[in-house]
Simulated scan of single mutants.
Amino acid sequence: MEQLAARALMSPRTFARRFQQETGTTPNRWVLRRRVLLEATDETVDAIAGRTGCGGAAALRHHFVRAVGTAPHACRRTFRGPQAA
């Protein structure tokens, strides 16, 4: 949380509050939801972005990399094997 807040040039508390206002969830829950979908389904990143209200695959990838430090396909490959990406 501290790293995300620093990147947004906010205190962790302000970042958490603004994130909740924008997304309706906490940063941790946002990341966990996307990780679960990437690990548990064969849906495309586009489909997951649509289901989770992210707006599109590019936005999901951007936020996912910022929050997790890796791309969605790399996360999926790590947890499900190379054939899953």
Score class of each variant (00 low, 15 high):
58 A>G: 03
47 A>T: 14
73 H>Q: 12
3 Q>A: 13
79 F>Q: 11
52 T>I: 11
37 L>I: 01
10 M>T: 01
1 M>R: 13
20 Q>W: 12
37 L>N: 10
50 G>L: 08
81 G>D: 07
38 L>N: 06
52 T>Q: 03
16 A>W: 07
84 A>L: 11
33 R>M: 12
61 R>F: 01
82 P>R: 12
31 V>M: 12
15 F>G: 13
61 R>P: 02
38 L>A: 00
4 L>E: 07
51 R>A: 13
64 F>Y: 02
61 R>H: 07
74 A>D: 12
5 A>Q: 01
77 R>V: 07
39 E>W: 08
69 G>E: 09
82 P>E: 08
82 P>H: 01
79 F>G: 09
75 C>T: 15
75 C>S: 15
22 E>L: 10
70 T>K: 15
77 R>H: 08
14 T>G: 04
6 A>S: 14
8 A>G: 08
36 V>D: 08
2 E>N: 04
4 L>D: 04
76 R>F: 05
61 R>E: 15
69 G>T: 09
71 A>E: 12
36 V>A: 07
40 A>F: 03
1 M>Q: 09
18 R>W: 03
16 A>Y: 07
76 R>D: 06
59 A>M: 05
42 D>G: 14
5 A>H: 02
79 F>H: 14
68 V>S: 00
18 R>M: 14
34 R>F: 01
38 L>F: 07
61 R>T: 15
19 F>Y: 08
26 T>K: 13
11 S>L: 10
4 L>I: 00
39 E>Y: 11
35 R>Y: 00
68 V>E: 03
81 G>I: 02
21 Q>E: 11
82 P>N: 12
35 R>C: 11
65 V>E: 07
35 R>Q: 15
83 Q>F: 08
41 T>D: 02
59 A>N: 08
10 M>K: 05
60 L>E: 11
24 G>P: 02
